[in-house]
């Protein structure tokens, strides 16, 4: 399920609908994949500690922690803080 939102406003959870932003918690960078077994020390350290810091449109995990508990992927502009599409996260 997907919900679109433009402009400032409450976060729209795909399942619960518009909710106050305080119900959601940041969950990390969905583009970061857990390295498989046998990866180098450097790969694991990068997984732990290195992150991109994009200026502008970015994707991030949001958890609807004080709501349905679903893990979601949200598009957010890191400069304007405007949130775009919010989708259910999948493995």
């Amino acid at each position: 399920m997907t919900r679109d939102q433009t402009g400032p406003g409450p976060m729209t959870c795909p399942f619960c609908g518009p909710r106050d932003a305080s119900e959601f918690r940041y969950g990390g960078d969905p583009s970061v994949a857990r390295p498989g077994p046998g990866c180098s020390d450097a790969d694991w350290a990068a997984y732990l500690y290195l992150r991109d810091s994009p200026r502008g449109p970015a994707r991030e995990y949001r958890v609807h922690a004080q709501g349905c508990g679903q893990w979601l992927v949200a598009e957010r502009d890191t400069v304007t803080h405007l949130v775009g599409t919010i989708t259910e996260a999948t493995p």
Partner: peptide, 11 residues
Amino acid sequence: LDPKPRAAALA
């Protein structure tokens, strides 16, 4: 925002 929420869990 919505007094009759369609999903029951909230803060």
